[in-house]
């Protein structure tokens, strides 16, 4: 069979199937999948997509866990949970969720800027958008929940200044570029600037990843023989930093992480000198986002928006040996 014949048959085949499909199923409308889900008692059955970053560190693994828990609490809604390794994949996921007919989307961005254009498009197409944690670069979402990252930066920096007695050399470890990171870093740096005895001798990004943070800190230690403390801003990175410190034989440097990983909280409780404190930033905020989306849909989108504030900030707490037991959840996945 020569090439043109093969093409002809292939195209005819695809055309035939497409025509058949278009005539039998719902046309270009937002058809739902073959009659599987049951219609909720209230009437319409809703579909909601949850788009989150792939679990490349403990916090994002926690997000996945809490997302699964929250969706199980709402069985009357059809949930599609997808995680994406990078922004391009997340954009494709969101496009695919649109064709699968979602009424709402709960989005935790892999990175803030790349996801904003598609989120805006989907919002304009009438889909309810709930944004969790890493915000869009434009106020596109119907509901945005984040931790108070400015308080995160401020409280963590204030603790470090106080523990160092206002004097010392510190290293700064940043995370993935997004609004979360920018708010934390800027707030922390403001505090450090206000205390001239504190000197930032090194700063770099660990991308909220343990391995990356370890490599980055190794380099920092080589060029800086004296570092009193590390503002690690994240517990996964803090653990990477600790490995680097051990490898370099640096015993007197302590680390301030963030997000309240149970292993770190335990060490704060046990008064470990390397981890004198921690800062909360619960991955369970995704559950709050999911619950809100479910609630808003059930109430009817137009009405629900009247009762739900546009922007909610979760307060951040400083964990010290005194209060650590209140923040220790040994059964948690994070």
């Amino acid at each position: 069979m020569n090439r043109s014949k093969a093409f002809l048959y292939a195209s005819l085949g695809i055309a035939a199937v497409s025509l058949a499909g278009c005539q039998s199923g719902t046309d270009a409308g937002a058809g739902k999948d073959g009659g599987a889900a049951t219609v909720g008692k209230a009437g319409k059955q809703y579909t909601v997509g949850v788009s989150i970053p792939a679990a490349d560190h403990g916090w994002t693994a926690g997000v996945k866990y809490w997302a699964e828990q929250a969706t199980k609490q709402n069985p009357d809604i059809k949930w599609i949970i997808k995680d994406a390794k990078e922004p391009n994949e997340q954009i494709s996921d969101l496009e695919n969720m649109k064709t699968q007919g979602v009424d709402a989307l709960v989005i935790l961005c892999t990175e803030s800027a790349p996801i904003t254009p598609i989120a805006e498009k989907l919002h304009d197409a009438g889909i309810l958008i709930v944004n969790v944690d890493r915000g869009f670069t434009k106020p596109v979402a119907d509901f945005f929940i984040e931790g108070d990252n400015k308080a995160f930066g401020r409280k963590s920096a204030e603790y470090m200044v106080q523990k160092l007695g206002g004097k010392g050399k510190i290293a700064v470890l940043e995370g993935i570029p997004c609004t979360v990171n920018t708010d934390r870093v800027n707030a922390a740096k403001e505090v450090f600037k206000a205390n001239p005895g504190i000197q930032i001798v090194a700063e770099d990004s660990g991308q909220w990843n343990r391995e990356k943070a370890e490599k980055v800190v190794q380099n920092m230690l080589v060029s800086n023989p004296q570092i009193d403390a590390i503002w690690a801003s994240d517990d996964d990175m803090a653990l990477g930093a600790e490995t680097a410190l051990k490898g370099a034989g640096r015993k007197n440097t302590w680390i301030l992480g963030g997000a309240g990983m149970k292993d770190i909280v335990k060490r704060v409780m046990d008064k470990d000198p390397v981890f004198p404190a921690d800062i909360t930033y619960p991955p369970s905020m995704i559950a709050f986002g999911i619950q809100t989306a479910a609630g808003m849909l059930r109430a009817g989108k137009a009405d629900a928006k009247k009762y739900v504030p546009r922007h909610v900030m979760i307060d951040i707490d400083l964990i010290t040996p005194d209060n650590a037991k209140d923040y220790y959840f040994p059964d948690s996945i994070f």
Binding site: A28, G31, K32, G101
Partner: peptide, 8 residues
């Protein structure tokens, strides 16, 4: 067929 064959 409900979703896959959508033009989108």
């Amino acid at each position: 067929h409900g979703t896959f064959l959508q033009v989108e």
